[in-house]
Design a protein around this nucleic acid. Structure first.
Lengths: 195, 195
DNA sequence: TTTGCGACATACTAATCAGTATGTTTATGT
DNA sequence: ACATAAACATACTGATTAGTATGTCGCAAA
């Protein structure tokens, strides 16, 4: 990686950390510059403006942070229920980046930016659909392995899993990590209730 | 209501509308003043600072907007499942204030402010617990009417309902109102799966 | 060796922010 | 009618904001 590319990805990674904790609109360029030891000239050399950086953050830094994690957990077991459970469990408890206090960067960004900006909404929709398709593929695999009735609406189940994840990430901001544990019990019950 | 009290509640109601759409931190005092036709002097006569206004907004304006709606739906039917379903259905579809695009003001505020401010977090925790207790009371009523096993963890079910509501409000920002409909089907299924 | 461009660095601007200082008006009890 | 405080109104401040203008430095090709 060239030095310039390193600078660029450094900006993105630090921005992700700050925006994760403070929100997009409340994180100033100067905030980012202060923690990256990069100057304003460098920032605006790599990004035309804050919005372009935010979009790159979604499709690159955020993607790279979460995606390997998801894919790994979905190929651990032959049982699709175990895999989906482990995906959520892993995101809640084992990801080094995320905490209960600050939630999930993707969930946060959807909440904050989807209503404010069409381009952000589109970018976040793409991430959502990619995740949905991945989960759905895993459910269909379970179906074909005889673990689930062929009548189930795999798309709706996938969306429901994501909906629960969004919800628990938000609730965790008020109830803390202990809520994750009791939620996971209920989540396991939900997965088992699918016939 | 005296004229001063009217000014105060006008500030709070307008602030709620703006903060609902733009977020708390992105809504400036000047924004509020511009839409209320109230001057800065009036604002700072009624509130020591922005934070105090925000807290009053949670315990007064937001409370008044949502609470009658919840209580009405929870006393409509003798069937607790129907009532809880109608509570969520009503919040999603029938509330005049909220839209899919902008979500729910309480959910939004939790997402944005719970990590940023201890006093906000506490105020929002109080609202959450009040809602949880109300739902739980309704579930227990259903239990005692023989609609649900006495073994169920009523507190966990109440929290799960709220978690789903948080999730669907966030997802609705990307998927729009049509998702509410398919979510409600799954939600009904969830309620019926409680034995 | 020089030329030119990629990759920054520095200094600025106009707008916006929360909050304050200090004034004026309006209502209210006596 | 008058005093007094409540309820505003106006004009400011210093800090922060996204973005720009312009300069500099090192390295690669000619």
């Amino acid at each position: 990686m060239s030095k310039a590319a390193a600078t660029r990805s450094d900006i993105l990674r630090r921005s992700l950390e700050l925006i994760y904790r403070q929100g997009y609109q409340s994180t100033s360029i100067d905030d980012i510059l202060a923690t990256t030891q990069v100057t304003k000239g460098a920032f605006y050399y790599h990004f035309r403006n804050k919005e372009e950086m935010g979009l790159a953050l979604i499709s690159e830094a955020m993607h790279d942070e979460i995606w390997p994690f998801i894919q790994k957990s979905l190929s651990a077991s032959p049982n699709f229920r175990d895999n989906i459970y482990e995906m959520i469990n892993g995101l809640l408890f084992k990801h080094p980046f995320m905490t209960a206090e600050y939630g999930c960067p993707a969930v946060n960004l959807i909440q904050e930016m989807a209503p404010q900006s069409e381009v952000f909404r589109t970018a976040l929709q793409n991430s959502l659909h990619k995740w949905k398709r991945t989960i759905e593929t895993e459910i269909i695999r379970g179906q074909q392995a005889g673990q689930l009735s062929m009548e189930c609406d795999t798309g709706q189940i996938a969306l429901n899993v994501i909906t629960l994840y969004h919800g628990v990430r938000n609730m965790g901001k008020l109830l803390g990590k202990t809520y994750y544990t009791s939620f996971l019990n209920e989540f396991r019950r939900y997965l088992d209730s699918l016939n």
